[in-house]
Design a binder for these strands. Sequence first.
RNA 1: CGGGGUGUAGCGCAGCCUGGUAGCGCACGUGCUUUGGGAGCAUGGGGCCGGGGGUUCAAAUCCCUUCACCCCGACCA
Length: 487
Amino acid sequence: MAEQQTEKKAEKKQGFVEHITPRDEDFSQWYTDVILQSELVDYAPVRGCMVIRPYGYAIWERIQEEMDRRFKATGHQNVYMPMLIPESLLLKEAEHVEGFAPEVAWVTHGGNEQLQERLAIRPTSETIFCAMYSKWVSSWRDLPMKYNQWCSVMRWEKSTRPFLRTSEFLWQEGHTIHATAQEAQEETMQMLEVYRDVAESELAMPVLCGRKSEKEKFAGAQATYSMEAMMQDGKALQAGTSHNFGTNFSEAFDIQYLSKEGKLTYVHETSWGTSTRLIGAIIMTHGDERGLKLPPRIAPIQVVIVPVAAHKGGVMEKCEELFARLKAQGVRVKLDDRDTLSPGFKFNDWELKGVPVRLEIGPRDIESGQCVLFRRDTYEKESVALTDLEHKLPQLLEDIQRNMYAIAAKFRDERIQTVHTLEELKAATQAGFAKAMWCGDRACEDQIKADMNVTSRNMPFDQSPVGDSCVCCGKKADKVIYFAKAY
RNA sequence: CGGGGUGUAGCGCAGCCUGGUAGCGCACGUGCUUUGGGAGCAUGGGGCCGGGGGUUCAAAUCCCUUCACCCCGACCA
């Protein structure tokens, strides 16, 4: 049996150059193989940058649709800010500058002339939003202002991985200002909840939401909240963040309004962001030996129709008919009518690209009024009467979506261990997350980072204690916190 | 920023040690036969050997230099 498999593998390699490194052998190489071969991205002729190819971009567009719909539903509007930020503006909030300075790219020349003042290519747009808000706000009647922008930002990273960390990346950044601290806090929580909802119900990716430690919070924030997902190698990926700035920025940028009582008052500000990193998260949450595995709700193609013996009478006609029927029903469907490829090749190709359902149909099926449905998540095949398709397919897609979430949740839950000592913490974070008590002292986080390259992820909202002493120093502790190796 | 590796056809590589003017597989074009898990045969097109400099009668090959990218570690969506 083992011998047969080896032979088969060798055959495959010979017959078809491309192959994927086994996921459990080398996760990192597997990831690179999958994203390149499934044509999501390619390396660009610019250091640290990636080209997002049509199939990858289509996934991003699906994420955008789901996010944007929810932003609008919660009363936000989209805007666009310039990509260049004057140096003087960037320098206004001290902590913020300190955090971002090492990775800012600068424009120093316009044509042949040196600029009077350097311009930063935005690493994030807090400062420019603040500059505009200070212009636009004068009365309590102007508040809140809840804006979002879809754009790219640039951070001069030293080492990069497509989707996970690139010099330029696409994201969305929401920036809002409010009259009261309470409103700002509600906004911060609401947007984290939007992110959680997209991650869990659309991406089928379970996340842990909570508050970041002082050490890990955003540069310039009063409080940062995040959602953290577990990848299949047990490492954590920060999949989205939501920040409450309090009045840190409004004081630095002088964003004030006249209150009902006629008093000059600083606004309370929030910001929140998610990026194309989410695509990396989908790949590393669901992918398997055959490549990508996309949840139906986010898949650009939900069903691919593969004709068998396409040259034979009636086959293509039937395929086109089914294509039209499914499309009319609102299914994202593709008909693979490429004429030089065998069905077997197409099967592998679409599995690599993670399409949730494959519909096979050939002369034999047509004769019996059936087709074969193959589901990407379980590899199961099922014969379905053509008259039942409209009824069966939506159910099947829903079922796949649910199953993918359940599998990811089970995987994650089995790899979260409650720990009480540093030894246990170290062992737990070899394969997953550690849930521990923490005294709140920065020194403990630093020590854990130094000793085992593990960082605190966040403090969950459910703070039911799992002990009473700090996992590191042993002193009295009242904070529940997750630790993990992180991307 | 440290350590390692790679640049030769669209992709994956061989050739380099021992210099003699470039080859294999896949992909691509055409024709015929095929089509229920990566099709077969025939035929055809495609390469300033990453850039610059040097040694030599002669450089993909030897020497110097430069650039780019990838992987692993320290900093970050």
